[in-house]
């Protein structure tokens, strides 16, 4: 058991070290892409906690991403806050929204849960459009460069941006690894496998599902706040249905219920969309095709399949 723990911890730390190494050798274009990918991967990691581990498919996660994004962006814009307080406030907003939505939506199960989360996210999107006096609606707004400072660090500089994104991703991976290996993580998996039996064993599924929802929303909010702060743009498209579908796509691609699945899936889908949109304006065609093929051929994703075949110890 001890060897197992150190093996998986070694794998994850090694991956983080590899990403650090890439910072020094990647060409500019991929350097910027990878910074974006790492932030989006945090979003997908949080989605995986809810979908892959707890078995809850939310179709409205863009709401939490947007809560983080707008929480950070608007507070920085109106109170002239810098990146630190802005990020914390964005994270707080996302957690608050996730708690509220969780308490309502978790009263439903299965298909209703998906539709309810999608509808709440749609409400969030419409609210952003409705209050366009403050949010500037679809057009969005730019966070001022001089506010995007973390102490002495200028987060709009490419090198710092990459390292901060990496730090966030590393924190997310390690928190999630600790969580899924803890007794709590096992209860979440138990709820996914058989909710009634878990209840019979004396655990309150609602409490654990709400906790998973709040942590997952927190990851999404952290990613949203970081995305706004690091790349300087806040817009309503980040709250649209499409941004609720993206993490699902990343997680399905990489492997639901595997800690590293979302990261691999985000890298693969990001470059697939990047290459496809270079070829055709109808790149969403490939997104749709990827969704259908994944759910048909490899519902466990790349890493899920690898774990089944070769590496059973993968957390």
């Amino acid at each position: 058991m001890k060897g197992l723990i150190s093996k998986s911890l070694g794998l994850h730390l090694g991956l983080i070290a590899l990403l650090l190494l890439l910072h020094f050798i990647l060409p500019d274009y991929h350097h910027v892409s990878l910074a974006r990918i790492m932030v989006l991967a945090v979003y997908a990691l949080g989605f995986n906690l809810l979908f892959g581990y707890t078995g809850l498919l939310s179709l409205g996660h863009a709401l939490f991403f947007a809560a983080g994004l707008y929480g950070a962006g608007l507070s920085m814009q109106f109170f002239q806050w810098t990146a630190g307080p802005g990020f914390v406030f964005g994270l707080f907003c996302a957690i608050a929204v996730a708690t509220l939505i969780g308490m309502l939506a978790l009263r439903t199960v299965g298909v209703s849960f998906m539709i309810v989360t999608m509808m709440f996210a749609q409400v969030g999107y419409l609210l952003i459009l409705y209050y366009n006096e403050y949010t500037r609606g679809d057009e969005g707004f730019v966070i001022l460069r001089e506010l995007r400072m973390l102490g002495p660090l200028d987060l709009s500089a490419e090198g710092t941006r990459y390292l901060v994104a990496l730090a966030l991703l590393a924190a997310a991976i390690l928190i999630k690894l600790a969580l899924v290996r803890s007794p709590t993580g096992r209860i979440l998996v138990a709820i996914r496998e058989n909710e009634e039996r878990t209840r019979m064993l004396g655990y309150d599924p609602f409490r654990y599902k709400l906790m998973a929802m709040v942590i997952s929303g927190g990851f999404a909010g952290a990613a949203g706040a970081a995305y706004g702060i690091l790349f300087g743009y806040v817009g309503a498209s980040f709250a649209s249905i499409q941004y609720s579908i993206l993490p699902l796509l990343y997680v399905l691609m990489g492997g639901a219920g595997v800690v590293l699945g979302p990261l691999l899936g985000t890298i693969a889908m990001f470059y697939l969309i990047d290459i496809a949109s270079g070829l055709t304006s109808a790149y969403l065609f490939f997104v749709g095709l990827a969704l259908v093929l994944l759910i048909l051929v490899a519902p466990k994703g790349v890493l899920g399949t690898i774990r089944d075949r070769w590496v059973p110890w993968l957390p």
Binding site: G110, G288, V292
Partner: peptide
């Protein structure tokens, strides 16, 4: 399967929509 078919029909939505665009 209810959840898998939702994912698949989301995929179908994108395929049909973009097919029509093209």
């Amino acid at each position: 399967d209810p959840e898998a078919t939702i994912v698949a029909t989301i995929g179908l939505l994108y395929i049909i929509q973009q097919g029509a665009l093209t």
